[in-house]
Design a binder for these strands. Structure first.
Lengths: 181, 181, 181, 181
DNA sequence: TATGAATGAGAATTCATTCAT
DNA sequence: GATGAATGAATTCTCATTCAT
């Protein structure tokens, strides 16, 4: 993760990963099928864990607003203090066309659906405004989260940290989706 | 742009670009210094144009809300009907670590600053809520725009098209940044 | 051919072939798909040519004995003076399992069949003895040719050269297949 | 032997041999110095045994014709029922340039010499025709034996089996070397 | 200006071999 | 003696780039 975050996927040599791990080049291949598999493994261990964590957390929250708040808090909270992970998630993973097409796309899609479902529920209960398509709102929320995490990871946005950013985004999103009075 | 959008930056061979352009491999190098320069050129001709277009448009709009509305409309409007461009902007450009670090980062930064400035002005005039950091809001807005354009480019979001998405996002953002009544 | 004959297929590096050919490593791959393809090409240009040459020559010979004589003369005659080729044909080609299984086996089989057919015709006409199975005779003849060519190629058998060996083998084979008086 | 026969020398992994033997990879190296040594060992245990067996058998036969008959019977007889061995002897051994050049060549040479000696003796006693060089005859006989064993091993020649082939080859060879009446 | 054949540096991956346990 | 995880040297092939024509 550290090496990938530093240099990007394609610019990283397998030998550099091996060196950083303190093993020989060949040893990498005892545990990972290929260079791509290294990224897949990062994805599985870190990103997928985030997704499943969300899935188990959401049912515990009462109301759509609370759920959306939780989504934002969790996604940014888990990256807080892990700049490398944040960079991998927001930048590096997307550099492997193979990973994206074969592996990440469906998970990503499912994640967006989950958020959209929360929005739809909130609309049904009258808690959220009706005039916004749930899927569009989901994409906007995800994009905002992603943009914030990315700029933070790339070091352009140190003021405040992700926890603070999280609170601000919750404000914007919840107001933005509030039903008109 | 078409070839890059289809296969991604690294998987695209210079010879494929040459073939698509109907010229010989070597001819590419009469007009572009390197493969990376092809991307840089795309960036300059398309993305930079968007940025400077924005810069000239914004002063014509009255009020922060109208300016933000215009930002959203322009960014999504220019991509509407140009799926390849949308994919290049939201996905492909980021695959070249070199381009991102050496070239795009400052422009991107300037763009975020421009949006942040609009927000700050709106706050100063009382048009927008005060309790959100302009830079954070800018990143959230940009992220939302980016997320919407990306899902659209990747074909996961056909319902409505970008013009429609644009209207919806304006709603969310302006409500989200509205001062409490 | 020269490099392969000298070092064997697996011990030969593609870079050595390139060097011997006076070109860069990569240039090899403009003309041959892979290292195996180099061998396939040798096979096609040289061995296959021998086979088709035989096919066109045989009908011109009168009688089975003359045909067998011609087979022997041609096979050894074409290798005379081409030690490298002889080594490639008798030794090197067989080192690439891929070439043998996917490419050479059927040609080899067809060649044996052609010889067997000549024997069978000779038996039908009473020119050759009846008590030997044509296919077995074909395999024995081919083996003898191959063994002679191989020992010559490997430098263990210089006395006389292949032309001389050819005459001797013709004697043995024709007497060996002569009908009992 | 089984694994080598199945996949060829170079395509066989040491780990595959270990697995087939039911031991760990490293264990192989307690008994064999290298992968090549595995082949050398096969050669020593099987091929060399054949050669020494021949050496002890020949003196018991009366006359050159009987001796040649015995050579043929033994060489093919020992392979009968041992397809894997036949394939190793006729195909696999030759894939290791190292084995061939450093190890097998002298034994092979000695074997050819032994056969040539039998022929020479037969010529001296008037039992065999004089107009064929003993070494050439030896190479032809060996080649025929080899070709028959190989085609049988590769599965292209099932009709009759090696015992039957043996009888047929004896016929051809002895007639072929018979003095003119 | 355009061409495209040639270049050759570079990198992922394999696998025979070792050796601490 | 046996193990098998670790090693790292070695090699094929790719492809951005050049330059003589």
């Amino acid at each position: 993760m550290r090496v990938f975050a530093r240099k990007g996927f394609h610019a990283t040599r397998v030998s550099e990963v091996a060196k950083a791990a303190g093993v020989a080049d060949g040893t990498i291949y005892l545990y990972f099928k290929s260079k791509d598999a290294l990224l897949v493994s990062l994805f599985e261990h870190r990103v997928e864990r985030l997704l499943s964590f969300l899935e188990s957390e959401l049912p515990r929250c009462e109301g759509a607003a609370n759920k959306l708040k939780r989504v934002i808090e969790i996604q940014l909270g888990l990256l807080e203090g892990e700049r490398d992970l944040a960079e991998v998630v927001t930048v590096i993973l997307r550099q492997s066309t193979k990973l994206m097409k074969e592996y990440a796309a469906p998970k990503f899609s499912a994640y967006l659906d989950a958020i959209a479902r929360v929005v739809a529920e909130g609309q049904a209960s009258g808690e959220l405004r009706q005039d916004v398509a749930p899927h569009l709102a989901a994409r906007a929320i995800f994009g905002a989260l992603d943009g914030i995490a990315m700029t933070w990871a790339l070091g352009k946005a140190d003021r405040g940290g992700l926890a603070w950013a999280s609170g601000q985004l919750v404000e914007i999103v919840l107001h933005g989706l509030q039903p008109p009075r």
